[in-house]
Amino acid sequence: MPLATLNTAVLITSSITMVLAWASCKMGSLPRFRLWMGATIALAFVFLVVKYFEYSHKFHLGHTPAHDNFYAVYFTMTGLHGLHIVGGIIVNSYLLGPGTKLWAKDREHFTNRVENAGLYWHFVDLVWIFLFPSLYLL
C-alpha cells in the first residue's frame, strides 16, 4: 500500500507536468515544453518501475492472478492500466522526439496534439484515482 500511495503521487505529479508541457506550448516556449514533457515521461517510467516492485513482491508471496478473485481483478485492472501508461509513454515520446518537427511548421497544430495527448494522459490518471482506493485501501 505505501508503494501504491507513492505511485498515486507520481501519477498526479505527471498530470501537472503534462499540463505545464501544454501550457509551455501555448506560451510559445519549446524548451520549456521539452523540460515538462521529459518530466512527464520520466514520471511515467517511475510509475512502471514502482509497479514492477509491487508485482514481484506479490508474486513472491504467491499472490498470482490465479490465487483468488481479488487478485484476478487486481492484475487485470492494474495490468490494463499499466498498458495504457506504456501507450502514453509512446505517444508522449513521439511528441518529445520526432513529433517536435511540426512545431516549426505549425505551432497551433503541434499544441493541439500535445493537448490531446494530455487529455489521454489525464484520463489514465483519472482511472488510477478510482483504482487506487478500490484495490489498495478498501
Partner: peptide, 17 residues
C-alpha cells in the same frame, strides 16, 4: 473513498482536461 475519488476525478476533468 469513492466520494473523495469522485471529487479528485472531478478536479482533474474540470481543470486539467
Amino acid at each position: 473513498a469513492l466520494v473523495i475519488a469522485t471529487v479528485k476525478a472531478g478536479l482533474v476533468a474540470a481543470v486539467f482536461m
